[in-house]
């Protein structure tokens, strides 16, 4: 009787696996045919010199050696990108969590507020960039107009925002915060899952809002915080569009990010081999950082009580 049950369970599991693979087959085929081939091709091209017209010529590791040892702009673009990631990821987390905490209330019209904060995520990035160019325009932009009393108070020159190499990176990061509503939605969803009984128990013990936030909300939100952290790092290292539209990588290459340089290597220098090598370097950097972050997973992320 027992062996009969075991074999039917095995049969069911097999059937379930087949159905699973069948459902996943479009994606599996897609990743194999449309994903794996270009990925492997780019790996090969990274070991070649290839102007995108003539046939690629194998040159071994030369592209990598040049990038690491004799390409000043490579390091400049790398620093710009690391700077962007280091500031924008923590700032994005804090902004997203803060918004979520503010909007996790049962007051009238809350859904309207939530929609308003999420709305920037559905605006075209080109339109967003142009809008912010107007706002941040140093001479007639609204932001400097609003800040003019502060400038007068401290007797300082108006900030040049994206027009100055010293403030351009921060300007683009601040602009990026406008879309923090995207992560806010994820945080809010997780907050809704936190059992009310925990808050009730805390209230019985006399906990205030800050104590409840620190000891209940934030620990239970760590899975979504961690998810947004990882996604933020990946997205941060790929930053490109906003600089391409707003600053053309300038001024003085201060917003010339890694992905921008990679794009120029391909499109303007016609050096596909070098661009592919850069793509693989970027992939490895992201892999290392993500692996390191995942190792922290068990230590910093609350994954539920062990049974």
């Amino acid at each position: 009787m027992k062996s009969e049950n075991t074999s039917s369970i095995k049969k069911l599991k097999k059937q379930e696996n087949i159905i699973g693979y069948l459902f996943a087959s479009p994606w599996l085929l897609g990743i194999t045919l449309l994903g794996a081939f270009p990925i492997l091709a780019s790996l090969y091209i990274s070991f070649t010199t290839y102007d995108m017209i003539s046939a690629p010529t194998f040159i071994g590791l030369k592209n990598y050696i040049i990038l690491f040892t004799n390409d000043t702009i490579f390091w400049k673009s790398m620093w710009n990108t690391v700077y962007h990631v280091m500031i924008s990821v923590p700032l994005g987390l804090v902004t997203g969590i803060s918004l979520a905490l503010l909007l996790n209330n049962k007051i009238k019209g809350m859904s309207v507020y939530r929609t308003m904060f999420y709305l920037p995520n559905v605006v075209s990035i080109v339109a967003m960039a142009l809008l912010w160019m107007w706002l941040f325009q140093p001479n007639f932009g609204v932001i400097n107009e609003l800040l003019s009393p502060i400038y007068k108070l401290f007797n300082m020159e108006p900030l040049q925002w994206y027009q100055s190499a010293s403030t351009s990176k921060i300007t683009l990061i601040l602009m990026g915060m406008w879309t923090a509503g995207g992560s806010m939605v994820i945080y809010l969803a997780q907050m809704q899952d936190i059992p009310v009984s925990l808050y009730e128990s805390a209230e019985v013990d006399g906990a205030n809002w800050i104590q409840k936030t620190i000891h209940i909300t934030l620990p239970l939100m760590t899975p979504s915080i961690f998810f947004n952290f990882i996604m933020g790092i990946i997205g941060g290292f790929q930053v490109f569009t906003i600089a391409y539209i707003m600053t053309n990588g300038g001024p003085s290459r201060s917003t010339y990010y890694f992905a921008y340089y990679m794009f120029d290597k391909m499109m303007t220098d016609h050096s596909m081999g070098m661009a592919s090598a850069m793509a693989w370097i970027l992939l490895i950097i992201i892999l290392i950082i993500t692996t390191f972050a995942l190792r922290l997973n068990k230590r910093v992320v609350y994954l539920g009580e062990e049974s």
Binding site: G250, P251, S252, Y256, T268, H270
Partner: peptide, 21 residues
């Protein structure tokens, strides 16, 4: 070796000179 010598390769330096940097 520099197909965009008058564009991407030159403009950052030109801007820095014009801005007095």
């Amino acid at each position: 070796y520099a197909p965009s010598w008058h564009g991407n390769d030159w403009q950052p330096y030109y801007t820095q000179i014009l801005n007095g940097e």
